[in-house]
Design a protein around this nucleic acid. Structure first.
Length: 111
DNA sequence: TCAATGACCTGCC
DNA sequence: GGGCAGGCCATTG
């Protein structure tokens, strides 16, 4: 396997894996939870490498609830199908009731 | 080592 | 209210 020195990616993967079923979070939320709110871009970049890891990146969307990374999946509809499979409604590549489905690790994990 | 990129976010016009 | 640009941090070439 690969133990590339506990990089930020591992932290992101860990949080993403903790996302409950039927819930979604944003890059900024994870970044903020990791203490790098200004590194939201890094979170997205980490997901780019998530392909080599068992990480449900489809549960991670941008601040607007838009499936920005759907293009990076095997199929553009794969991400949407995965979310819908979890009970999440997708409208125009956007998560419906995103605020209701939003899962903030900084709050849920700190509870 | 330096430079450029990146599935973003916030602020300003 | 909507659209545009810049900034930040880490990884890779």
């Amino acid at each position: 396997m690969k133990e590339e020195t506990l990089s930020f990616f591992e932290r992101v993967y860990d949080v993403v894996r903790l996302i409950p079923y039927g819930r979604v979070t944003s890059y900024g939320a994870i970044a903020r939870y990791l203490g790098a709110a200004r590194s939201a871009r890094m979170v997205g970049y980490a997901m780019n490498a998530s392909h080599t890891r068992n990480v449900p990146a489809h549960r991670v969307v941008n601040r607007k609830g838009l499936l920005t990374g759907k293009f990076h999946f095997d199929g553009t509809k794969l991400m949407q199908q995965l979310l819908e499979n979890e009970g999440i409604v997708i409208k125009d590549n956007q998560v419906r009731d995103f605020e209701s489905r939003f899962w903030d690790p900084a709050v849920e994990l700190n509870k």
